[in-house]
Design a protein around this nucleic acid. Structure first.
Lengths: 216, 216
DNA sequence: TTGACATTAAAACGTGTGTTTAATACGATA
DNA sequence: TATCGTATTAAACACACGTTTTAATGTCAA
């Protein structure tokens, strides 16, 4: 989408796109309507005309980003019935990381979700039901397939949180990681490397739990 | 410290304490000087008189909280030479979690640090050198003792990030976890339970890596 | 008691924010 | 072309923020 051609674009769409960028970069609170309008090259009153309020714009951006993300990054791309649970776990992790760390339009939702987790707004409940809970359940299914049915639900929950925590840390602590470990990058093959580590670390833990479960 | 006895307290200390609370709850940007002064029951100009600016107050709060935290939660309490690396890891995790999740004065630093990680301010570099890097190195030492000297530094770094990510997730995603898993609480024995899980999960992964290392 | 300095307080300042208002422009239709 | 509904815009509003200013008050030593 070319921002230099105002005559060919609808104002509303431009606000959605600029809003996606700015909210993803800054989060809801720090993002300003003026910055969004500046990027969209529209008058500041347009936000209230088209969206009523900054909050409604944010809600609409979330909806739009969700639609975009659903097709670009499905939750469980490996669920073809042919992959092993181990492979599905690895795919899940790589997929989730890509959403969080990739910097382009389809990544808005991942970034918006990561921000919402640590800086909750009124939209948190909707994001939980729309994205986080399904994510959690999908991952829980994979974990259960690996550790077996004898492992308690509470234990599986803990494992899911451990996996999500590892992944999200690379998003949330990015400035810190950049300072402590400049060799860790965020291009495609680095995301692959990160996913491989998390998958290996996690699989080892899950196999241990699987054996633990079988001892009872 | 009793906020209802203004005559017995110095204004500066009251601002430090109220600032500690508000910055920990809200983060630097969202915290307001007016809220801090309201809690401290002092006039708003006092911040500029005693601390020059909101930023200087923040920096002083960090310093004060750091002093408090250093005695209450030493980094490696198990380093008496008698504990096994496995036990030291468990102690480290429990200790770190306590800092992050316990809600009382000594926890300010952990909470401030957790916030700074996801919402960096000008104080980030200082916090990295003061707290995060030492934390990282301490943990890296423990990890190395478990996996052995043949494991690469890069791999150890990844493991450290995996451990920190698991712990910090409970802090950063607290509102989400509260909604998805209301049975996960944050009292002392719950922190213990969380630490036990993370330690078990992590030890299993590290033992796997230890064996991997020995195969080469 | 006086004077110097420190501290506190109220009011105001300067700037930024999201929102509102009224005027104008635009596009479609009769 | 005129009319009407919609969209856009500039200016203003109301409020919040961190900071400054100024005057009053408190404290302490001589």
């Amino acid at each position: 989408m070319d921002m230099d051609k105002p005559l060919s674009e609808l104002t509303r769409n431009r606000l959605l796109h600029a809003g996606g960028e700015v909210f993803a970069e800054r989060g809801f609170r720090t993002a300003t309507v003026r910055e969004i309008c500046r990027r969209a090259k529209v008058n500041i009153a347009s936000v209230n005309y088209h969206f009523s309020s900054k909050e409604e714009l944010y809600a609409s951006v979330l909806e739009y980003a969700y639609q975009q993300a659903s097709s670009a990054f499905p939750n469980d791309p490996g669920a073809t019935g042919e992959d092993t649970p181990e492979r599905r776990l690895h795919n899940f992790i790589r997929n989730f990381l890509s959403r969080l760390l990739y910097e382009g339009r389809p990544a808005w939702y991942g970034m918006l979700m990561a921000r919402e987790i640590v800086e909750p707004t009124g939209a948190l409940d909707r994001i939980i039901e729309r994205a986080i809970r399904p994510l959690h359940e999908s991952l829980a299914g994979i974990v259960r397939d690996i550790v077996g049915e004898q492992t308690s639900g509470a234990k599986i929950t803990r494992c899911v949180l451990s996996i999500l925590g590892q992944c999200l840390f690379y998003r949330h602590a990015r400035p810190v990681i950049a300072r402590l470990h400049p060799s860790i990058h965020y291009e495609d093959k680095d995301i692959e490397r990160t996913a491989a580590h998390i998958a290996e670390f996690t699989l080892a833990a899950l196999r241990h739990l699987s054996k633990q479960g079988r001892k009872r």
